[in-house]
């Protein structure tokens, strides 16, 4: 997933880019409002700082919204209530006050993406997608998995876990997020359960490279070609 960071402060941008890249995002950056608008077509999601050197961040937000429905999350040092309300009114999908936590930011990006998918699903049957990764083909609609053309039998939890990872191939899913999505709870013991399920998934799929462990963060599926957006 391609993430556009609009941020004039180099050091903040670099730190943010590091964490987001670690979460599997393809990060690119714009330092000014004009640059942001120019690079907008390449972005799947935009992180927008309000304090830009050339133009007001609110104005950038309004102009992005005028021509695109790409998710925009405002990430700014401006904490005032009026600024938060104004930003959301102008079309931002979320508003975070610096200093932000990377994990929270990722969770919010996912939340914003889910909402976007919900909209799209009404017209496009998004969950009917088929994700192809190497020899593995995952059919999300009929809940089947084939490895090299042969069907593989998965438990319900195993399939839910695989489906959650396959929704955005390439993107790293944090352990906590996967546990919450698949088991609907979160506690420390659930992470053990997750590891067990990942292990059995890898064994059944016979391809340990498909589900990649990102140390300190979580897991991701490395897909051949994007099945969806």
């Amino acid at each position: 997933m391609r993430l556009l960071i609009v941020e004039d402060d180099n050091r903040v941008a670099a730190a943010l880019a590091g964490v987001m890249a670690r979460h599997g995002f393809t990060v690119f950056r714009a330092a000014t409002g004009a640059e942001a608008l120019a690079r907008l077509p390449d972005a799947d999601v935009v992180l927008l700082d309000l304090g830009l050197p050339d133009t007001d961040g609110f104005d950038v937000c309004r102009r992005i919204r005028a021509g695109s429905d790409v998710p925009v999350i405002v990430v700014t040092a401006r904490a005032e209530l009026s600024a938060r309300i104004h930003g959301l009114n102008l079309g931002a999908d979320d508003y975070m006050v610096k200093p932000v936590n990377g994990a929270e930011l990722v969770a919010r990006i996912h939340a914003v993406m889910r909402r976007g998918r919900g909209d799209a699903a009404r017209g496009r049957d998004d969950d009917d997608r088929t994700v192809v990764a190497g020899p593995v083909t995952i059919d999300l609609a009929v809940r089947t998995v084939h490895v090299g053309g042969a069907p593989v039998v998965l438990t319900r939890r195993e399939f839910d876990l695989l489906a959650a990872l396959a929704r955005q191939p390439g993107l790293v899913y944090r352990r906590g997020q996967l546990v919450a999505e698949v088991w609907g709870t979160y506690d420390a013991s659930a992470e053990r359960t997750l590891e067990v399920h990942i292990g059995s998934l890898r064994a059944k799929l016979g391809d340990h490279a498909l589900i990649e462990t990102v140390r300190g963060v979580g897991y991701r599926i490395v897909a051949d070609a994007p099945g969806g957006r």
């Binding site: 903040v12 730190a15 200093p99 936590n101 990377g102």
Partner: peptide
Amino acid sequence: RNPLGALLLRVEH
């Protein structure tokens, strides 16, 4: 907030 934000992200990373 900016330097603090960068610092926290670096620590998190």
